[in-house]
Write a protein that binds this DNA or RNA. Structure first.
Lengths: 115, 115
DNA sequence: ATTCAGTATGTTTTAAAATGAATACTGATG
DNA sequence: CATCAGTATTCATTTTAAAACATACTGAAT
């Protein structure tokens, strides 16, 4: 006899640091888009997010990381831009690894929920 | 050489059903307070949440569960009240079990994060 | 020294969500 | 059959967060 409704577990993962939330999926998407587009402005457009907001997220990340995740280039040809540091690249990789392991575990451990 | 900053993983767990989010820690707290106080009104006060909001959460839960988690008593002595059904009691237990296992796994699997 | 596109920052608008207030309903009990 | 406290529901108000707007600032290139 099958249950009439299906339930499954969802999991949201993020990294905390002393001052609070440091890195979640939203900031990861932003990092990816900065990498892809070469600037905060274009990354923000891509994500349909206000530049101001994107810029603030970058500030937060950079200040809370041991070393900045995003390098910002001011002025010059093309007005400048932004690109990921090695730490930024690593952050993406690490985050997805951690997230994947936790989500897989969550699925595996929670079959046949009933409410 | 110790790292200058400590990072750790945080995890938010909730149960989804076809129509969307079904049961997270907020609704669990509400269930616990209904159990403790015997009414939605008093549970809401306890949590400093508007009665309206608490009532809506209860409705949502009851409709999305296979059988209601909260039994509401209308009128009568004391005006009525609300209490958990067996399904409601079980929901609390199951949720915390699932949450605990996932959080423990998350901690265990993520020592020494560096950013 | 002017241009140019992106960064940096403050201010204002808008939109969404939560709250609060108000009102009717319910039914056991005296 | 009036009372009473909690449920049920609508509507106006407040709070909050997000987005939009506006305006300097930067520095390589021409």
């Amino acid at each position: 006899m099958a249950d009439s409704k299906k339930y499954n577990v969802e999991v949201r993962v993020w990294i905390e640091e002393a001052e609070g939330a440091f890195l979640g999926i939203g900031k990861i998407w932003l990092l990816e888009n900065i990498k892809k587009t070469g600037s905060i402005t274009n990354a923000a457009k891509e994500m349909k997010m206000a530049y101001r907001q994107a810029w603030q997220l970058v500030e937060e990340m950079n200040q809370r990381a041991e070393s900045p995740l995003v390098e910002k280039l001011l002025g010059g040809k093309g007005g400048g831009g932004a690109r990921l540091t090695d730490a930024g690249e690593r952050a993406i990789t690490i985050f997805y690894e951690v997230e994947k392991r936790i989500k897989e575990f969550a699925q595996k451990e929670t079959q046949n929920l009933k409410f």
